[in-house]
Structures are given as structure tokens and as C-alpha cells.
Nucleic acid binder design. Structure first.
Lengths: 228, 228
DNA sequence: GAAAACGCTGTACCTGCGGTACGGTTTTTG
DNA sequence: CAAAAACCGTACCGCAGGTACAGCGTTTTC
């Protein structure tokens, strides 16, 4: 990474923290540059105005989020051929990732943007909307796969279930932030997991042996405490 | 309502709209007073500073929210003696209330505060925390009642389920605001309702006749499309 | 019916921040 | 070594939050 990109990255990280703690409108450029150890001119060299900063922040955030999703649900698929099991494993891993954040989840930039829509131009809002839509279609596709093999017990719209994923995470972040209790987010993800499990599990009697042998090694963490 | 309280209420309503649309830090007093038709001095007569405005706004919001909860879940209890059915009816009514908002839910002030914590003093944050905790113990008590009669099918912590209610609503508000689609919030509440239903329903075979005869008349709206 | 409290208005002023402009300087890179 | 990249310094504008205080009409209270 060149020195320019490094500084840019530092600005974005600091600004994200500030935005999540105080809101975009209350985030002062002076504070950001002081913490980043640069001058105002330096800042405006990288971002022509605050909206460009917002755009870059959002893109950075969405990308990082996508990497996490790719990681946990990709691992889920590696660990089971059954789409339901794979998704449940992914959710378990996601809950673990959320729980392992040192000071709890810092906050969701999408939610922050949502609660300050008037502050941003169309492009920023479009980035937020597209990202969420992308996650929804992603999870919707997964749910379709699952439903093909496991007929859902309740007549619930799968788009709504896919949407629920984002809602639970965003709601869980708010609760864990507000209550200063990182575990709440973890619990919410696991509760959503229970919902999915119940929705696609045919009967109280549990059919065992659907989990294929793990092809990949799992790094130190035992994955199978509550798989079914 | 005295003239003073009337002006105060007008200020609070306008400020709430602005805060939900732009964030607290970006909400300008000049804009609020312009819309309220008063002067700056008039504003500072009612609120000594922005933090006092925030406190009053939050209290107003929480109170309104409590009224809605009291209303829908109170009606639920009127319509069924079974705690599960009463809760499910309440959730259905809540979803309807959410769907009937003319321009969608304007936003949750608690979430807004959460994403701008650094802007507020301890008291404001305490109000937010206490309100959410109040809702959680309320729903937890309801869930305890339900669980006493309907053993839950999954080993889920009831505190987490109670928490999930707030998460779903806050998450649903974010999604519906972001996507400009008020129905998403309604769907999320109904999805949570499905979760509760599944969690406390003993088996796929539905035992009928648990709904007691409604003692109260239902005002024009037919309550029983998807009760079980 | 006078006094006090209420509900504001008007003016003036200070501070800090977002943002612009622009010339100069150092650092990196081809 | 030269050019591009990555900044620094300074000076400035306008707006918003916030303070201070004097005053004024209306309503309430004794």
C-alpha cells in the first residue's frame, strides 16, 4: 500500500469511528485530521468534500462486511453439503465473529446513513440501498436452496426472512451498543438461527447424520456444539 | 393545553422530524424555530440547551411508544385468555399499526440516540437505556406467562426473545426507511410473530379450540385471519 | 385592580466548524 | 533528475450554536 492510500485508509478508519459515535453531521473534520496527524489541506487532497468522504466510508464498510459474509457462509458450505446445515453453520460462525469483537460491534454505517439521509446526496443513499439489496438477494438465494430440500413449516415469505437477517443484525447492533453488552448481538444472531432451524426442520424428531464430514480443518474452534 | 405547552409540543414535533431525518448534530435550531414560527429567544425559553431538547424529545417518544404497546397488547388480552394467543393478536395489531402510518415509520429516536451517543449527556443515554430495559422486562414477563402454558420447542433464552422484539422493530424501521417501503416493517413484525408462534406451538398438528370466545367486540377490523 | 409570572421578541455578540482558495514544500516514483 | 504525488500553511468566508440581556404584551394570582 502506497503512502497515499495508507493515509486515506487512516482517515477513513478514524472518520468511521467518529461517525458511528457522534453522527455524520457532528463529525468535525478538524477532529479527524488531528487524530490522523495531518492538516486540513491534506484531508481535502484526499476527499474533495464531506460527501466524498461518506461515499468512500460506505464503500469501505460494505466491502468489509461482504468479506465477513463470504468468509462465514463460505466456510459453512465447506462444512456441509446440505444448504440448511451450511447456512446454520454460517450463522453460528457469524455469531462468533460478532462476539469476538474486542469492544463490541462499533455500529452499522448503513443504519447511520439511514438516520441521517438528508445529510447525503443521492449517490451515498444509492450505495446503502444497493448494498442491502445485494445482501437480501444473496440470502434469498440461500433460502431458496434450503426450501427446495426442506419445505418450510410456516408460510413465510422468503424475501422477508432474508430481510430479517439484516434487521436482526442492525437491531442487535443497536441493542448491544445501547446496553454496552456485546453479547446481545451474538444472542440475536443465534436467535435468528433458531428461527431458520425451526422454519425448515420438518418435525420435533430430529433426523441425524445430515452433516457431511468436514473437508476443511476448523481452526481450533470446535464447530459442532449446537449444529442441530 | 396552555399556550406555552402548545408551543413546546410544536417545537418537539418539528425537532423530532429533523433529528430523524438529519441526525441530532445536524439539526439546526434556526431551522426548527423558523418552521415553528418563533424566535431563537423563544426556543431557549423552553429549552436551556440542545441537551434539554433531546431529553424532552426522548421522553415524548418513549411515552408515545408505550401508549401504542399498551393499546395493542391490552387489546390482545381482551380478545383471548390464552397468553400466547393474546400476544400473537397484539403482534398482529402492532404490525397493522406500523403499516397504517401514512409515510411509513418516521424512525426510532432510541436508535438515533444510539448512533450519536457522544452528542448527549448521561441523562439522555440513561433515558434511552431505561426505556429499552422497560420494554424488555415487559415482554419477558409476557413470554414467561406463555412459556408456563406452552413449553417452548427450542431452548432459547426468553430474555433474548424479548430483546428480539426491539431488535426486529428497530431493524425493520431501518430497512423500511432505507428502501422507502413501509411494508417491510410490517412484514418483519409478522415474521417475529411467526417465530413466537413456532416457538410455542407444540407440534405441526395444530390443536384447535384454544382461542376463547372474544368477550369484547372488535371494532370493524376482523382480527382472525391468521390467528393460528 | 395591581403585581407577578408567563411567553415570548429583538439585538448584539462570541466561538467554532465546514468549506474554499492557493501557493509552497517534501516525498515518492519512474 | 524530473515529474507527479502527497502533503503543509495561511488566510478567509459564512453559518450555526450558544450567551446575555433588555423589553413587552398577556394571563394568572393575590
Amino acid at each position: 500500500m502506497g503512502k497515499g492510500l495508507e493515509t486515506r485508509e487512516r482517515i477513513l478508519a478514524i472518520a468511521e469511528m467518529s461517525v458511528l459515535a457522534k453522527g455524520f453531521g457532528a463529525t468535525s473534520i478538524d477532529e479527524v485530521i488531528a487524530e490522523a496527524g495531518i492538516t486540513k489541506s491534506g484531508f481535502f487532497y484526499h476527499f474533495k468534500d464531506k460527501n466524498e468522504l461518506a461515499r468512500a466510508m460506505l464503500l469501505r464498510y460494505v466491502e468489509a462486511n461482504n468479506r465477513v459474509f463470504d468468509d462465514v457462509f463460505g466456510r459453512g458450505r465447506q462444512l456441509s453439503d446440505d444448504p440448511l446445515q451450511a447456512f446454520l453453520i454460517g450463522l453460528k460462525l457469524l455469531a462468533e465473529v460478532m462476539a469476538d469483537l474486542p469492544h463490541g460491534h462499533p455500529g452499522c454505517l448503513i443504519a447511520s446513513v439511514c438516520y441521517q439521509e438528508r445529510m447525503f446526496d443521492r449517490e451515498v443513499r444509492a450505495i446503502a440501498v444497493n448494498s442491502v439489496q445485494g445482501w437480501n438477494v444473496r440470502f434469498r438465494a440461500t433460502l431458496d436452496e434450503i426450501a427446495a430440500q426442506h419445505p418450510p413449516r410456516e408460510a413465510v415469505d422468503l424475501d422477508t426472512v432474508a430481510d430479517m437477517m439484516s434487521c436482526i443484525v442492525d437491531g442487535g447492533i443497536i441493542m448491544s451498543k445501547l446496553m454496552a453488552d456485546p453479547r446481545r448481538l451474538e444472542h440475536q444472531v443465534l436467535a435468528f438461527r433458531s428461527f431458520v432451524k425451526m422454519l425448515f426442520s420438518p418435525s420435533p424428531a430430529v433426523p441425524a447424520g445430515q452433516v457431511s464430514a468436514p473437508a476443511t480443518r476448523v481452526d481450533s474452534s470446535h464447530v459442532d456444539p449446537h449444529l442441530l
